[in-house]
Write a protein that binds this DNA or RNA. Structure first.
Length: 868
RNA sequence: GGGCGCGUAGCUCAGAGGGAGAGCGUCUGCCUUACAAGCAGAAGGUCGUAGGUUCAAGUCCUACCGCACCCA
């Protein structure tokens, strides 16, 4: 069976994905131990990015690994309607055509978004497929599907009936660009250059004044008090007096409240209860007036008097100018302060007092906190547990209403006659309170994350009691990034316990966020994004997956440099060519049961190494150490299988060993491809199916077992000695520039097996080894151990003095290595306190070194005598 | 202000108590019949700084310096 000399991903990938789908390998059979994962549904806003690629790769590695271990694997795919993000994207698109959503009716606009959704869901599906994700498409879900919408309504109604959802007027975050409120989590704070304005507020009935400091002078239009710290000596006696708001003339009570930080600014705080969350609390405590000065577009409203119609920015400028003109402005200091912006569009959010729907989180969080504290739900890496608990312990109520059109409409119908909220899963026609038929549904939709929170069970058919729920809930692991622990993970845990009475998943594996090679976020504006689809086109899905796995250490950032993709594409090519070599030598292959007595040193060595690799990969995957697992396969395959075993057996394929070697090669390659399959599914399937031992498909092939009987320490030690001897010879060849085409003569003092002798001759490019009692003349020393020495004859090439220099350098290096051990052994404390095996080991190392050094020194002395 | 993480080879990163590792890059030599996307070799490191714990510290502790991130 011939295959091409180069690995070409394009020609193999989609062929196999199609085949796997036809065979329905990704649809669980419903029998045996189960393993389930629900996908973090990508937003339908656009193309997936490298973060998704990492997320999908990790899940696919787990799914394929477990499938090969015999689990009945369900990996459930789907997409998220992503309320704000999608509506923003669609509005941006409409804007390019000079339109806005207000040019359409709600129904017309939703039609447009549904078209968008269909288009992008198709795109996303294609991209998930391109990565090779083994998801069960027959169970694909969308957060706005009928079933999931039903789940959303049921949860809303249930929580409302339990008194855990309420409507109320509180300070919320308003994004005027998106035209909606946001939850606290949806606001991103950043330090920005601003200014601290010091403004005089005169005291009523006195000549004096009090100077307040603020970063937002325009909000003074909504001031209803001035606050000072009760124990601030500077303002002793001020509390109870009345200040006069400049320009406006409103009378403001001066109050004492310990919230005020005396060390900030002047220690006197203007209080604007309608436009600042902390001021709001002060306002409540002191029964202050709430004056809202903005409309929905954050333009000053009628409460702003002469400034009405100005934007916040315009108002700030005008107000500061007027304050200055009237002598109220004391000074303006530059100040860095944190500014909150909308996580979807970056607009500065305005705290406003609004009537919204909230989920009361404290009671719900209780069980979810307990679960993580008791390790019913565990985080990997563990440190995220603390992050989760810190947040959950200080959780605030969740604002869930959004002034959008795209999303789950809030299932509340207010009676237009009596004002009663009719909260129901199905549209009511009569007010349950007064019997009126004059009902109007709430205009708002729910926060996207409200539906995402139900994802682990809503996707499996809840509230119906389906077979899928019975079998696959709870899921085994959730794989996601740390950026959505609060948005999503925490809320899923909450809802899972509340509605299923059970955790939604056992483990949460938090992977890194993908960044560019400098550690910056990948973003369109920086132009540093790497598009996974382009990577798949250019390098192939397998090298991309392997690259991501290699980089998936348990840190916080994954800095992706395209150079890695080159490296691992080369690895894929290496696998391709190693298989090619094996296949080229299998014309007369016959599967035989290899008996231990048939095995030669190299065979025993590679089989032993394979066992260790199998064990290491398996353990690493069980512990989510993807980089360790991938790294182990990289070095086993390349450094051991290719560089040594394959090279070592090339000659043996021409001898009576051929049959044994063929069988060992096929076995080791077969197992290697299995171990690599979760990382590189396409390539391994393509190659594996060409092996004479292949079964139907690697997807459903068995994961290799660790066979303890094949672990052979003494063969490993012996082979590694052999490797050292060969390296010693190669070293000398390289140093004196003996070209590859020239064979050198070598001498050995000591014993070698026939097999070892052949390997040294072949791999060291040496002609018939001669056994000697002592070092022959005109020879360089290649290897020295207590029992064996290897010399390379250099004839006229040898330069005695440079050989002496070379050996002296070697001695020096060995001495410095040995000194570390010798020093320890001189140390009484070490001998007394270190564990016995460590002491023994150290003694052994020291002995080996000193013997070798002594021997090389002897050789140097001999050489020096020859020159004299 | 509170918290988390990170400073290891020129670059990107592994390693988390007992001889400093990988890939890329650099240098030298090879078109050796699987692979030049390759092979063989080499150079390159006070493991951020200062203390401490320990027989033993990149590895554990403390402080500091620098870089990120989360929360207020």
């Amino acid at each position: 069976m011939e295959i091409g000399t180069r690995y070409e991903p394009q020609s193999i990938e989609m062929k196999w994905y199609k085949h796997w789908l036809e065979k329905k390998y990704f649809t669980p059979k419903g029998a045996g131990p189960k393993y389930s994962i629900v996908i973090p549904p990508p937003n339908i806003t656009g193309r997936i990015h490298m973060g998704h690629a990492l997320n999908l790769t990790v899940q696919d590695i787990l799914s394929r690994y477990k499938r090969m271990q015999g689990f009945d694997v369900l990996w459930l795919p789907g997409e998220d309607h992503a309320g704000i993000a999608t509506q923003t994207a669609v509005e941006k698109f409409l804007a390019t055509q000079g339109k806005s959503r207000r040019d359409y009716s709600r129904e017309e606009f939703l039609d447009i978004v549904w078209n968008w959704a269909d288009k992008y869901r198709k795109e996303i599906r294609k991209q998930i497929i391109a990565i090779g994700a083994s998801v069960d498409w027959s169970r694909e879900r969308f957060t706005l599907d009928d079933g999931l919408s039903k789940a959303v309504r049921k949860v809303f109604v249930d929580l409302y009936k339990k008194g855990l959802i309420y409507k109320g007027k509180y300070i919320v975050n308003w994004c005027h660009r998106c035209g909606t409120v946001l939850s606290d989590e949806e606001v991103e704070y950043e330090e920005e250059e601003g200014a601290l304005y010091h403004i005089k507020y005169s005291i009523k009935g006195e000549d004096g004044y009090i100077v307040i400091a603020t970063t937002r002078p325009e909000t003074m239009l909504g001031d209803t008090a001035v606050a000072i710290h009760p124990s601030d000596e500077r303002y002793k006696g001020y509390a109870g007096k009345v200040a006069i708001l400049p320009i406006v003339g409103r009378e403001l009570p001066i109050i004492a409240d310990s919230y005020v930080d005396p060390s900030f600014g002047t220690g006197a705080l203007k209080v604007t209860p309608a436009h600042d969350p902390n001021d709001y609390l002060i306002g409540q405590r002191h029964n202050l007036q709430f004056v809202d000065i903005f409309d929905d577009h954050i333009v000053i409203n009628e409460n702003g008097g002469q400034f009405k119609g100005m934007t916040a920015q315009q108002a700030r400028k005008a107000i500061v100018e007027q304050l200055e003109a009237e002598g109220y402005l004391v000074k303006i200091e530059p100040l860095k302060h944190s500014v909150g912006r909308c996580y979807r569009c970056g607009t500065v959010v305005e705290p406003r007092l609004m009537d919204q729907w909230f989920v009361s989180m404290k009671p719900l969080a209780k069980r979810a906190i307990e679960a993580v504290e008791n390790d019913e739900v565990t985080f990997v890496p563990e440190r995220w547990k603390k992050v989760y608990l810190n947040w959950m312990n200080e959780i605030r109520d969740w604002c869930i209403s959004r002034q959008l059109w795209w999303g789950h409409r809030i299932p509340v119908w207010q009676c237009q006659d009596c004002g009663h909220y009719n909260v129901a899963e199905e549209e009511p026609h009569v007010c349950e309170h007064c019997g009126s038929t004059n009902l109007k549904q709430d205009e708002d939709v729910l926060d996207t994350w409200f539906s995402s929170a139900l994802w682990p069970f809503s996707t499996m058919g809840w509230p119906e009691r389906t077979a899928d729920l019975e079998r696959y809930y709870p899921t085994d692991v959730l794989v996601t990034g740390f950026d959505i622990i609060f948005f999503w993970v925490a809320r899923m845990i909450v809802m899972g316990y509340e509605f299923m009475g059970e955790r939604p998943f056992k483990e949460v594996y938090i992977h890194q966020l993908v960044r560019d090679k400098h550690g910056r976020k990948m973003s369109k504006s920086l132009g540093n994004g790497i598009d996974p689809l382009e990577v798949v086109d250019e390098y192939g899905a397998d090298p991309m997956r392997f690259t991501l796995a290699m980089l998936a250490a348990q840190g916080r950032d994954l800095k992706l440099d395209v150079r890695f993709l080159d490296t691992y594409k080369k690895f894929a090519n290496k696998i391709w060519n190693a298989t090619r070599f094996v296949l080229m030598n299998l014309d007369d292959f016959e599967k035989v049961e290899v008996k231990p007595s048939d095995l030669k040193l190299a065979d025993r060595w590679i089989l032993s190494r394979l066992q260790k690799a199998t064990k290491k990969v398996t353990e690493a995957l069980d512990g989510y150490d993807f980089n360790v697992a991938a790294g182990e396969m990289y070095s086993f395959f390349w450094d051991e299988l290719c560089d040594w075993y394959i090279e070592a057996v090339k000659n043996r394929l021409k001898t009576s060993d051929r049959k044994i070697v063929q069988n060992v090669l096929v076995d080791v390659l077969d197992a290697s491809l299995r171990l690599l399959h979760p990382f590189m599914p396409f390539l391994t399937e393509e190659l594996w199916t060409k092996l004479p031992t292949a079964g139907e498909s690697l997807v459903i092939a068995q994961w290799p077992k660790y066979i303890e009987e094949l672990v052979d320490e003494s063969s490993e030690a012996e082979f590694s000695r052999l490797v050292d001897m060969i390296r010693g010879i190669r070293n000398i060849r390289a140093e004196v520039n003996v070209p590859q085409s020239t064979r050198v003569k070598a001498f050995v003092k000591g014993k070698l097996t026939q097999e070892e002798q052949e390997y040294i001759e072949f791999l060291g490019n040496v002609e018939n080894i001669e056994f000697v009692e002592s070092r022959p003349e005109k020879c360089a020393t290649a290897y020295v151990s207590p029992t064996i020495e290897v010399y390379v004859s250099l004839g006229t090439l040898i330069d005695i003095s440079s050989e002496i220099t070379r050996l002296r350098k070697k001695i020096e290096k060995m001495r410095s290595d040995m000194d570390k051990f010798a020093k320890k052994l001189y140390d009484k404390d070490f001998l007394e306190n270190a564990p016995e095996d460590v002491v023994e080991e150290t003694k052994e190392k020291q002995r080996t070194f000193s013997e070798q050094i002594a021997r090389i020194e002897q050789i140097v002395t001999d050489l020096e005598e020859t020159t004299n």
